[in-house]
Design a protein around this nucleic acid. Sequence first.
DNA 1: ATTATTTTTGAACGATCACTCAAATGTGAG
DNA 2: CTCACATTTGAGTGATCGTTCAAAAATAAT
Lengths: 198, 198
Amino acid sequence: MARKEKYDSDETLSRATSLFWMQGYHATSMKDLETALDLGPGSIYARFGSKAGVFEAALNSYAAGRRAELEKYLSDSETILEGIAAYAGSFRNLCERDAPSVACMMMKSVTELHATEPKLQAVASHLLDATEEMFAEHFDRARSAGELREDSDPAFLGAWLQAEIMGIRTYAQKANTAERVSQLADGLAERVRNLKAV
Amino acid sequence: MARKEKYDSDETLSRATSLFWMQGYHATSMKDLETALDLGPGSIYARFGSKAGVFEAALNSYAAGRRAELEKYLSDSETILEGIAAYAGSFRNLCERDAPSVACMMMKSVTELHATEPKLQAVASHLLDATEEMFAEHFDRARSAGELREDSDPAFLGAWLQAEIMGIRTYAQKANTAERVSQLADGLAERVRNLKAV
DNA sequence: ATTATTTTTGAACGATCACTCAAATGTGAG
DNA sequence: CTCACATTTGAGTGATCGTTCAAAAATAAT
């Protein structure tokens, strides 16, 4: 029974994510989504309920992708601290990536939607909190493993790392910043490594 | 000859700036502007030419305000480096301010408009560059005055400071971050002070 | 084949979008 | 008082906004 979905739902969602990530919420119209997803408005509303619903799903999918990214750096590194540092340093080539935007989608959303779409802004805010929490947990594990100085504050370091990354990614939105971005990312990675216990 | 303008042009511009700063470019409609400025569409188009024209004027006005702000901290401080540090530290109460947005308007614009309004994005990008340049010049003056270590790179420090501030201001867009923001701003001010020559 | 169920299609809705322009209004010089 | 002119007013432009929904199409069980 039942007709097949025209496209795999993951593929559909990832196209929506690209579009929203690139253009933001308000600048992306349903028409844009219809052409990008190659679906009629009815199909989109049947699956997501509203434009805001598509956005929320896209944002969650984006966050999951970023989570996986960090995990990869951690599992590829000898120590936890080195994993975090490698992740931080990975932003050195931010400007050369062919992503929909150099800025993080959660970050873009939390600033764009603050005054106009409080519910969606809250979703983005919570996802960023979860990311910060994740950073903090890894710092905490590193401390337990004796990699970090005893007087380190993992919760603060989580907030600090998130703010640092936000800074670099926002700075990278300016024109001709590739070189500086590399320097900034290198500097950040070094500061993370300098947290190491003596 | 000629009828008087209904309002002082500075007042008009500052209201437009508040609105765009708060809501961003795409989420702000001409209707919004008409009510906020208490002006008909004809008047607005006569003065600014287009919605983009209003935005550009608002952005320039915003940038001038920020420039003045930094100058104030510098003239109130004994040394140049201390002035910069005081400015950096001033973001400790970012969340308590009653500004239209905790995030910087240039920063919001450069991320929001990248894909959809390249001309306006370029305006924001250039204004941010001018700000970075201003930071760099002050660092350079500080170095010449012997306040900074000889091996300091003022141009890099300008970029670094801008990215740091961007990070804190974006982080502050999340909910319940007032305390963390204070810690981050204090930390930044301290790092600036640590640039001092030994 | 028929039926039940799911999905797609796309025309259409009222609201709002950025913007235009002719007419009204106010102002100071002569 | 009159006239020249800058400015405001606000109705109206066509286009696009997010959304709805009835009808068509596709699938799988009976």
